[in-house]
Design a protein around this nucleic acid. Structure first.
Length: 404
DNA sequence: TCTGGGGTCCTAGGACCC
DNA sequence: TCTGGGGTCCTAGGACCC
């Protein structure tokens, strides 16, 4: 088989860069990329964490994911800006459109990362030349910078794009693995998280090279299925194709940190209900039905509990999902202060492919849901509200994004 | 000191059956 | 006192990613 030609494109400080470009376009005089700044959540809502940081903020030791409160202690002239996911989606789509000029084999790995399979689209050009061209064009035409990783599989291309930032192109071909990747701490390897690092450390494994040179059997004995992947990745092995198919979701969830801990079961249920409405709405937008509901509660000490329950039948009905969620809440809730509530549906199936015998027979409810969905699509999610629920809607914000 | 929200996948243990 | 063994399915929790 001929060698594949893979690129990984990663937007540098995506949320912050996109916000900066958007602000400049709207007449803001300062480029927030050039000052100590972050994109952060809402501290009053107790979701105040750092989502993205400027290079100068980084120099102050500010890291993504830490509370904004900590970040401000590290830099008292830090400017913080809110996240606007509609803006992010806009620039993410612009970037995708640009990639379409090069190949139709694109995998949107996240809002700010794509894999491009150029194998059949090079037309005699060198992959590295295409990488540089994309890097330059994105900056010239869209106003933000990207890192481009160049290699023969997705894992190596992704590792390459993570080398020196910002606005860089790096290669990481098989023959370069030893030189460029093996000296890195093992924590840098994709899929090695903070729980696995100390376990590897205890085995004397500190670098990606240490892991790669270990006996595979040994690693698999210690880490199971995860071990297979870890050892392959450390050796630069990844056969997974660039998947350009937009897959239907396997689960749909909505969770919210409450502005204040709640202890009253009725109050908590109001939140659950609003979450159910949102989840079932999104389910219907995808033409999917679910067979299980999962309720998550986080208490004030950050302990999470979650229970799941099968629905009586495959459904996307708000009423049924809310009913089962209520049963879950009754069985789980012991009266402690609750910080976060989440509802998620699982085991999703295409509505068309489900045999009628497994369906509910509640045409009236279905019609009601569908009428309300129509209003939500036309006038925005929060336009449709149950009486007396306005305060809850303030907490559980609807996704305004329109589905196809 | 205060700690998001959206996902996917894996695993251990219990229930149940033969 | 000793109390199978294997398979499947389900659940809760946890690891990882961005």
């Amino acid at each position: 088989m001929e060698e594949r030609q893979i690129l990984h494109v990663d937007v540098n400080n995506a949320f912050l860069s996109w916000t900066a470009v958007h602000m400049l376009k709207n007449g803001h005089s300062i480029d927030i990329r050039t000052i100590p700044s972050i994109i952060g959540g809402d501290e009053e809502r107790r979701s105040g964490i750092v989502l993205a940081k400027s290079p100068i903020a980084k120099k102050f030791g500010i890291v993504t994911g830490e509370p904004i409160y900590f970040a401000r202690k590290k830099c008292n002239r830090l400017e913080t800006y809110p996240a606007n996911f509609e803006v992010f989606k806009f620039y993410s789509d612009k970037l995708y459109d640009l990639f379409l000029e090069y190949t139709d084999q694109i995998e949107r790995f996240s809002i700010d990362e794509c894999f491009l399979d150029m194998t059949k689209f090079l037309n005699g050009r060198k992959l590295i030349d295409v990488a540089y061209e994309i890097n330059e064009r994105v900056y010239k035409e869209l106003g933000f910078t990207v890192n481009v990783g160049v290699s023969s599989n997705k894992l190596l291309a992704k590792m390459a794009s993570d080398f020196e930032k910002p606005n860089k192109v790096h290669t990481l071909y098989e023959y370069e693995i030893e030189d460029k990747m093996w000296h890195l701490p093992v924590s840098e390897l994709f899929m090695i998280g903070k729980k696995t690092v100390p376990k590897l450390f205890n085995l004397g494994i500190k670098t990606i090279g240490d892991l790669a040179r270990q006996d595979k059997e040994f690693i698999v004995r210690k880490f199971g299925k995860m071990g297979v992947m870890m050892h392959d990745y450390a050796n630069g092995i990844d056969l997974s194709p660039v998947n350009n198919i937009i897959e239907k979701p396997k689960s749909i969830g909505n969770s919210v940190t409450l502005p204040k801990d709640l202890k009253d079961e009725e109050e908590i249920y109001k939140i659950v209900l609003a979450l159910c409405e949102q989840v079932s709405y999104r389910l219907r937008c995808h033409d999917l039905v679910a067979s299980t509901v999962n309720l998550q509660l986080r208490n004030k000490d950050f302990k999470d509990i979650s229970h799941q329950k099968p629905l009586s039948y495959l459904t996307s009905s708000t009423k049924e999902i809310a009913k089962t969620s209520k049963e879950l809440l009754k069985e789980m809730y012991k009266g402690e202060p609750i910080r976060l509530v989440g509802v998620r549906v699982d085991n999703l199936q295409e509505k068309d492919e489900v045999q009628m015998s497994f369906f509910e027979n509640d045409t009236k409810q279905e019609k009601l849901d569908s009428v309300l969905d129509g209003l939500k699509k036309k006038y925005g999610y929060s336009s449709v509200t149950r009486a007396g629920e306005l305060d809850v809607k303030e907490i559980v914000k609807g996704k305004e994004k329109k589905m196809k």
